[in-house]
């Protein structure tokens, strides 16, 4: 199934709050069984991670950080899970790049992101080749809207980065417009994009991105920094 309705009441598992999330089954090697708690928190989220191409590259790029892929389609999530299990087995002896720092879960990020992540927990959020929802009346279903951006700003650290990439120019313009309009985000310029490793990974490593390249299609990128929250907002 290519699409999943983000508004419907899927039977999803999600924690009642970030404190009650059991991350140990996702990152067993990062669970301190003596202390009974995780020794790290997830800091990179790939929202709508698809087949996990980016996630697997992020694992190598940021061996010290926990990365999570969120995907709403059941079978796709299962595929990525199997892929991660296979990689963990294959590289079990590798001290650093052993894929113990990536995991995938089936979830609806549009509804339940704050159930998983605390305020300011994330360093990076990726939105790669999101569903374009071409029809006007479906625009609320897009993953970037002015109202959802406030939730992304909540889970991102100040200085954290939102990455977007798409092969649909209209959607790119939409995302840029909404991110530009949001007071807590500021676009990062081309020079920044050139030197950023994640931009390169996003361009090359996702399955969608590779398909676009094969078809000689265009890709558009926009990256935004999470600005500091104005004072006296609490």
């Amino acid at each position: 199934r290519a699409h999943s309705n983000p508004f419907s009441d899927h039977r999803l598992e999600y924690p009642r709050s970030p404190d009650s999330m059991d991350w140990s089954k996702f990152y067993p090697k990062h669970f301190d069984s003596e202390q009974g708690q995780m020794n790290k928190k997830v800091e990179i989220a790939d929202i709508g991670c698809g087949y996990g191409g980016l996630l697997i590259n992020l694992a190598k790029e940021f061996p010290q950080l926990l990365c999570l892929g969120m995907e709403i389609r059941v079978q796709v999530t299962q595929y990525v899970e199997d892929r991660i299990i296979a990689l963990r087995e294959k590289y079990a002896k590798d001290k650093i790049s052993n894929y113990q720092n990536i995991a995938v879960l089936r979830g609806n990020a549009m509804k339940f992101l704050p159930n998983f992540f605390e305020k300011g927990q994330l360093l990076k959020m990726f939105f790669c080749f999101p569903d374009p929802h071409f029809k006007q009346r479906k625009h609320k279903a897009r993953i970037i809207t002015n109202t959802l951006l406030s939730e992304y700003a909540y889970v991102l650290k100040e200085g954290g980065v939102v990455y977007t990439i798409t092969d649909v120019e209209d959607l790119h313009n939409w995302m840029v417009q909404h991110l530009n309009d949001h007071p807590l985000f500021k676009r990062l310029d081309e020079n920044w994009e050139k030197q950023d490793k994640c931009v390169e990974l996003m361009w090359n490593s996702t399955e969608e991105g590779q398909k676009v390249t094969r078809n000689k299609g265009s890709k558009w990128i926009a990256c935004y920094e999470r600005l500091p929250t104005p004072e006296d907002c609490d």
Partner: peptide
Amino acid sequence: DEHIRITNYPRTYVVKNWLF
């Protein structure tokens, strides 16, 4: 969806927190 959200006003782009 069992959420209670607290948002700054009038700066409604700043989410204060959720009550879980």
